[in-house]
């Protein structure tokens, strides 16, 4: 039996909304330590990795007697989650050898209980081994700032060059009709930590990425006030949104490399 009771349905709603356009079908891997989801987009350029830890405060109850994989169509899941109020407590439930995933939405005042079942799918997806590595550069910034940068630069071109150096980080785009550049200086003196821009640098990195994917990742902006970008030359960028009281959502994007 698997049963996870999440205090805030809005968190799951935001997660699924941010994933469903790039990753339409995905396996939720449930174990006693929590829920993980890893999925590649259909062009095999981007990867998402979600981790919701069972021992964090976001779960009121969590039970998983044996490891199970729940193959779900995320577009359908998003439709079901739209039936939940933002303040509803949401319970996910499945049997040990499940064909069905059950969603139960309890309203805050306890007056309304809704139950929805969806059919699970057999999804044949290849799990990739993502190594824990030190990155040459880790940039932390307000998530809305990163969203704005991606959205602004995507007006002019398809790829952005991210240039991390000790003073800060530069984002540059060069298209057929024009070019643009946004310089972000390191700023760790502002009062609120979530408004800071910080750059941890071991080695300078200059790398190009497809803006289409970065813009898609920023659909997760409402999950977190901050986002971190981890870069190493000639390896995928990691865009991480922490999820308070649960874990994190990471996106990996393969670089564009001179061939």
């Amino acid at each position: 039996m698997f049963e996870a009771k999440m205090l805030q349905s809005s968190v799951l709603k935001k997660i699924i909304e941010s994933l469903k356009d790039l990753f339409s079908d995905a396996n939720f891997d449930c174990s006693s330590s929590g829920i993980t989801l890893q999925d590649m987009d259909s062009s095999h350029v981007a990867l998402c990795y979600l981790k919701l830890r069972s021992d964090e405060e976001g779960f009121e109850d969590y039970r998983c007697d044996r490891n199970i994989t729940l193959g779900v169509n995320l577009v359908l899941m998003s439709k079901i989650l739209k039936c939940a109020g933002n303040d509803d407590v949401i319970t996910l439930r499945a049997e040990d050898e499940p064909n069905i995933l059950t969603f139960i939405f309890d309203s805050k005042n306890g007056e309304r209980v809704s139950k929805y079942d969806i059919k699970l799918m057999e999804i044949d997806s290849e799990l990739l081994g993502i190594p824990d590595t030190e990155y040459s550069c880790v940039v932390k910034m307000p998530s809305h700032e990163f969203q704005r940068i991606c959205s602004n630069l995507s007006q002019l071109g398809d790829s952005v060059t991210v240039d991390c150096h000790k003073e800060g980080v530069d984002f540059k785009v060069a298209g057929e009709q024009g070019s643009g550049a946004i310089k972000l200086k390191q700023n760790t003196t502002v009062d609120k930590e979530e408004d800071q821009v910080s750059v941890e640098l071991n080695e300078a990195v200059t790398q190009s990425f497809a803006l289409k994917f970065l813009c898609a990742f920023t659909k997760a902006t409402s999950l977190s006030d901050t986002v971190s970008l981890s870069l190493t030359q000639d390896t995928p960028i990691v865009v991480e949104y922490p999820i308070a009281q649960h874990g994190y959502l990471r996106f990996y994007l393969a670089p564009k490399i001179e061939e």
Partner: peptide, 14 residues
């Protein structure tokens, strides 16, 4: 010529 890399070429298959 800049080419888009594939994500799986960076991570070994688990």
């Amino acid at each position: 010529m800049i080419g888009q890399q594939k994500i799986y070429s960076f991570f070994r298959v688990a």
